[in-house]
């Protein structure tokens, strides 16, 4: 990668605005905090959930998008803990802004430790999707995304929203499907805190969408491909 004499994308933003910005780029401090957070997370996953991962070899080099079923707050934590090296450093969880970015302290934790980017449900602007799509390719990022849009309340996976397609349709960025088993039992939406319980993560072969147009139809087709891939992993 050649050196780019270019300011951070979030240059000039005030502190609080920067935390919530989709243009936020990581500096040394965030990388160190993120590393510490992942170390704690891996220890927790090992000790409390005996996390078992299969298919790690399916993870490509960045950029890519990792998608999974969503039934618990443990989902994003598990996927963050599984990534290694450059992929871990470049990973952003796309998190619900109305849940994780409502206070300055919460935003600071979500931004610096988890490296989450806020998605404002039901009011995401096309320009925000365009920013995420552009950064994914240009900055060679990794997005952790749950295309169901919210945690399922009954443990049964819902259909995928077309937002994933808006990010990758027509690009060469692969989507890595994952299925996480055990998270709903360990920490369902009805519980305030998690309880110990076995977690099994299956990582599938990447799904491609470069043959699809970046139109509504292409986005929906991408979402269907991703959903089918995750359901196939669940059925194993």
């Amino acid at each position: 990668m050649e050196f780019d004499l270019r300011p951070a994308r979030d240059h000039g933003l005030e502190g609080a605005d920067r935390l919530k910005s989709l243009s936020r780029e990581r500096g040394l401090g965030s990388l160190i905090l993120g590393r510490a957070w992942r170390t704690v997370l891996r220890g927790y996953m090992r000790a409390f959930h005996r996390l078992e991962v299969t298919g790690r070899e399916n993870l490509p080099s960045p950029p890519f998008v990792i998608v999974a079923n969503h039934s618990s707050h443990l989902d994003a934590l598990t996927l963050s803990a599984v990534l290694r090296g450059e992929a871990a450093r470049r990973a952003h969880s796309l998190a619900a802004g109305d849940t994780f970015f409502t206070s300055t302290l919460g935003s600071a934790f979500a931004a610096y430790a988890v490296n989450a980017l806020p998605i404002w449900r039901k009011r995401t602007r096309p320009s925000e999707i365009a920013t995420l799509r552009e950064r994914l390719v240009q900055d060679r990022l990794v997005y952790i995304l749950f295309p169901e849009g919210t945690r399922c309340r009954d443990g049964v996976m819902a259909g995928f929203q077309p937002g994933i397609g808006a990010l990758v349709a027509g690009t060469e960025v692969p989507v890595v499907p994952c299925f996480l088993d055990g998270a709903f039992a360990a920490w369902p939406p009805t519980r305030k805190y998690p309880r110990p319980g076995k977690l099994r993560l299956t990582i599938g072969a990447p799904v491609r969408a470069q043959d699809l147009p970046s139109t509504r139809a292409g986005w929906e087709e991408t979402a269907q491909r991703c959903e089918a891939a995750v359901r196939a992993l669940a059925a194993r």
Partner: peptide, 13 residues
């Protein structure tokens, strides 16, 4: 910190 974010040096941690 300001210098590295302005010049892009922060991308070289």
């Amino acid at each position: 910190r300001e210098f590295d974010r302005a010049t892009g040096l922060f991308r070289e941690p």
